[in-house]
Design a protein around this nucleic acid. Structure first.
Lengths: 346, 346
DNA sequence: CTGAAAGCGCTAACAA
DNA sequence: TTGTTAGCGCTTTCAG
């Protein structure tokens, strides 16, 4: 063997090796790999054979450098440990990988500084697009992403951001169904534990609840409207606040499932029972909701749907004549009735 | 302005722009950015100023191409929707990002084909190292990773893989504590719901249980040793199998928390109570375990610890004189007593 | 201590 | 249709 270069086992088969092995030029190898139609079938066959024999894998870095496309998609979520997100991520990843994209995940923990870092990371790695699935933040430092004309997808954010897609969640639908379901069961005393109100999404859910209550002509008792923080602990604390009052509601809706699970906890500690003493409705329909005790009635917002549409929008911006301009897609919500809702006592 | 090139807003400030702006050569910019100590302080200052003024971000692709280091770490998990993993991922990501690495996540869903895809993705992106946190698989197609001499970290796998780190989990510790805790409470009828036994980790946990039972001189009833699959559903089904028998155990240990939560579900459906009718111990101490109703007594295996040590091993292989050779680190486990364990009836 | 120049592996003109 | 060649943005010898 006269191979001058590599002797260590760390093999670095590159396009030249393939070209040599197939007896063609590197350009032909490149064309073949990229499925350029003008390559002669016989040569292409030789190339593929060489590729297989040498276990050749194109170097993505080099490809990215020359093409300007990294085939990397950013996905920014608020809390990867919030069960809603892994499901979203899984679906997002599935589709992205399927399309030959890789994903870069960043979680902000609701911390502006971390959001900063995330954006920076995305920029450095030259992602081709970013999906920002943080459910609310206000006017953050995405300026740079926008300046660089990187396709962006948000959930439900009042835009003002040109050339970005937005996934607009119709919270109203499902929440209204929830309130109606409760009202139909005979509930007139319905409480609500919101998410942190500085989040647009939490605001939106709360508004949807309030409006739905009005439509259903159920009186609203402000004492039963408590702010939580979308965590288990927050839900438990909020419910304890409600339970410490003289007048108790017969049902409670929550801004998300984790909050509802926190409520179950508080109710259990108070030695009350669900749904006998209190009906409960969550929001998100995370996988876990199906298995709480008892299984949680909740409003579903399909995270698969969300993920799919997010990737689709991003990809559409990346394709040749990719749809520029404001794309807005609506994500529906609907009630999933399980076992935490029942008729109120007496 | 005589800037010939870019007019579109998609700014692509590169190293030449910075060099020009600072009045130095690109080599000096590069050195400054890489903190090469021999750069004159005055020049360095000019460079940093230019970097700041131009909002310059080095192109990672180019860096990777020339340096051969992608600063990308692969992280392969089995199921991102299993709550154990997000916590692991979060910690892994935190440390990696902190060290200037980005992570590529792949989930196998216990599917060999997906594992294949994952490995391929890692290879294509030229990751600098891979952590395989799948809790068991047998002799998979990592050959390529090994051939390419990519640093690998496994959890608890009998190696034969040269130059790989292995995180060896000491299941025994915590499980023994669990059995002893139960025995001390007066339990003599203890069941066990294992994970899928084709997984080494599930095997190991089961063995640890069996051995601990022997050490504690508690008789083992094979009818109460059931195989689950580490899911909620699996746990519920397994518990239903146990509940359908004539003789019932007074306590059950599970191979993971999701299984235990499934057990809670089955017990609830059977209108029995925990811990009054059945004591229950899980494994993993996922975040959720603290908030099940009642809170789950479980064996903790610190996923933070796992993540930290995994990244550390990987990085140590990457540093200049990086510790080659077999690194083996032990991860401890211990019992966290909460409220699903109590004395057996009568 | 600094700059010029040679690539890293690949794609995309441009020629042949 | 195929090959030659010029970079993509950066790091890194090698002179100066």
């Amino acid at each position: 063997m006269k191979s001058s270069s590599k002797r260590s086992s760390a093999q670095k088969t590159d396009i030249h090796d393939v070209a040599a092995h197939a007896g063609v030029s590197i350009a032909t190898v490149s064309r073949t790999l990229n499925h350029v139609p003008t390559v002669d079938a016989a040569l292409a066959a030789r190339v593929w054979k060489a590729v297989a024999e040498l276990d050749y894998l194109p170097n993505t870095q080099a490809r990215a450098l020359v093409s300007g496309k990294s085939r990397l998609l950013g996905l920014i979520v608020s809390e990867i440990t919030n069960p809603f997100f892994p499901e979203l991520i899984q679906e997002f990843e599935r589709i992205a990988v399927d399309q030959g994209y890789e994903i870069l995940i960043g979680s902000t923990s609701h911390d502006p500084k971390k959001m900063d870092t995330c954006v920076r990371r995305m920029l450095e790695r030259k992602v081709d697009g970013v999906a920002i699935m943080t459910f609310g933040f206000e006017e953050i430092v995405l300026d740079r992403l926008i300046a660089d004309e990187i396709p962006l997808v948000f959930i439900d954010v009042a835009s003002k951001h040109p050339r970005s897609g937005v996934l607009s969640v119709n919270y109203r639908e499902g929440i209204q169904e929830g309130v109606q379901h409760l009202a139909a069961l005979g509930h007139r005393k319905i409480g609500f534990i919101s998410g942190p109100l500085h989040l647009r999404s939490a605001q939106a859910r709360k508004s949807a609840f309030l409006e739905s209550m009005q439509s259903a002509a159920v009186p609203i008792n402000p004492k039963w409207i408590v702010e939580g923080d979308h965590t288990l602990e927050g839900g438990r604390d909020a419910m304890q606040t409600i339970l410490s009052q003289k007048a108790l509601p017969t049902a409670v809706m929550c801004s998300n499932d984790m909050t509802a699970i926190g409520v179950q906890h508080a109710v259990f500690e108070a030695r009350l029972r669900i749904p006998e003493d209190l009906s409960l409705i969550g929001f998100d329909n995370i996988h876990m909701a199906e298995y709480t005790i008892p299984p949680l009635t909740t409003v579903q917002m399909s995270c698969k749907d969300l993920a799919q549409k997010a990737v689709r929008i991003l990809l559409s911006h990346l394709s040749p004549e990719g749809g520029k301009g404001e794309i807005e897609i609506t994500i529906g919500t609907r009630l999933i009735v399980r076992q935490t809702t029942g008729q109120p006592r007496n």
